[in-house]
């Protein structure tokens, strides 16, 4: 059985927003990566950003400053 832990997941309704966020987070050295949207957050398809929970404040600040729209920001138990 794979180990699980709580991550912060930010979902985007538009692929362009997810890619813009990836570029932004990389430029600000915010760790994490793009993953498919977990089904517990949204049925269907799309992209989200998976990062450590302690990044929440930095992630929010970066997104607000850059004017990038996100849909949801949740703590989700995922495989490590």
């Amino acid at each position: 059985m794979r180990e699980k832990k709580i991550f912060l997941v930010i979902t985007f309704s538009e692929t362009s927003d997810a890619i813009a966020a990836e570029k932004l987070f990389e430029s600000r050295h915010i760790p994490g990566r793009i993953i498919p949207i977990p089904s517990q957050l949204s049925a269907g398809c799309g992209l989200s950003w998976k990062t450590e929970t302690e990044q929440e404040k930095e992630v929010k600040t970066a997104l607000v400053e850059a004017g990038i729209h996100w849909e949801d920001m949740e703590r989700v138990c995922l495989w490590v």
Partner: peptide, 24 residues
């Protein structure tokens, strides 16, 4: 298991590209 998470593990751990979710 969430299909997105399985597809993510296939991609990251095994280098196998698949498609999860709803497939339109």
């Amino acid at each position: 298991y969430d299909s997105g998470e399985v597809s993510d593990v296939l991609s990251v751990d095994y280098g196998i590209a698949t498609r999860p979710g709803a497939h339109c």
